[in-house]
Computed example of a mutant assay.
Amino acid sequence: MASNKETFGKTLIFVFIVCLVCAALVSISAVGLKPLQTANRLLDQQTKILEAAGLLEQAGKDIKGTYGKYVEAKMIDLNSGDFVEGNTDMFDERRDSRDMTKSSKPKNDIAGINRRADNAVIYLIKDDSGKVTTVVLPIIGSGLWDLMSGFVGLAPDLNTVRSLVYSELKETPGLGAEVLNPNWKALWPGKKMFDEQNNVAIKLVKGGAKAGDTYGVDGLSGATLTSNGVENTLHFWLGDEGYGPFITKFRTQLRDGGM
């Protein structure tokens, strides 16, 4: 009987030691891999930004070099539209949105994000002479299953679309996930976000936009909720509770020769 107890006790000690060793290995791996994970996340983000800027093909395999040469990341205060200081590489809109001291709840949350960070990072794409050719704005909003994040590239008028690029998402393959389809992304260049009264006018049209419709893009077939999510996301982020104040100030500075 005593021998059985002794054996059981040794087994518990052995299991406990194995658990400690495994936990230590997992912790060491997590700490060791974190810099690599951060670098990969940043590289993926830079790749998407270059795609939104129309520079991905030019970049080839030199993503970091091309990004460093042509892209200037700037942090802005969304409420005022002013540039502010901040670490643009480490900024995480969703992380800040969960901090009550760094975020606010939108009055008209059509994007379905619950809370919006007070700051944002925008990307000024410049040519070899230093002139701004494209402004890339990060966006995030609800799809069918989860939040969808991406980037919209706009000409310096902050109205004419260069591109709309979404990151990997959880939408249904063949339906909502068609936002990643190159054929659908090719429908966006040249579209206008704002009408002549400066209201956000871009829309996704169920059944397809009519030829010559400046503000219309074909909706995603069989994915009405995802299409609505894309449209609502753009209306939110280009509106007064999103980049609206920044857009107004940027256009003024550009007109006055300040950019």
Rank of each mutant, 00 (worst) to 15 (best):
A2H: 11
K5L: 10
E6P: 07
F8G: 07
F8I: 13
L12I: 15
V15S: 13
F16T: 14
F16L: 15
V18Q: 12
C19A: 15
L20E: 12
S27R: 11
S29T: 06
A30T: 05
V31N: 08
V31D: 08
V31M: 07
G32E: 06
L33V: 00
K34Q: 12
T38S: 13
N40W: 07
R41H: 05
L42C: 05
L42P: 07
D44T: 14
D44M: 10
Q45P: 11
T47H: 06
K48S: 14
I49W: 09
I49C: 15
L50T: 06
E51F: 08
E51Q: 15
L55H: 11
L56N: 13
L56Y: 10
E57C: 11
Q58D: 11
A59M: 08
A59P: 10
K61M: 09
K61W: 11
I63T: 09
I63S: 04
G65D: 07
T66L: 09
T66R: 08
K69L: 11
Y70C: 13
Y70N: 14
M75D: 09
S80N: 12
S80D: 06
G86E: 09
T88D: 06
D89I: 04
D89C: 02
M90I: 04
F91N: 08
D92N: 14
R98Q: 12
S103P: 03
S104K: 15
G112L: 08
G112K: 08
N114K: 13
R116T: 15
R116F: 12
Y123V: 05
I125F: 02
D127A: 03
K131Y: 06
T133R: 11
P138C: 04
L144I: 02
W145A: 02
D146T: 05
D146L: 01
F151E: 04
F151V: 00
V152D: 02
G153N: 07
T160K: 05
V161Q: 11
E168Y: 02
L169G: 13
G174W: 00
P182N: 06
N183Q: 14
L187A: 02
G190M: 03
A201P: 05
I202Y: 01
L204W: 00
L204Q: 01
D213L: 00
D213H: 00
D218R: 01
S221T: 04
S227C: 05
E231T: 08
W237E: 13
G242N: 05
Y243N: 10
G244R: 03
T248R: 13
R251C: 10
Q253E: 15
Q253K: 15
D256G: 09
G257A: 09
M259R: 13
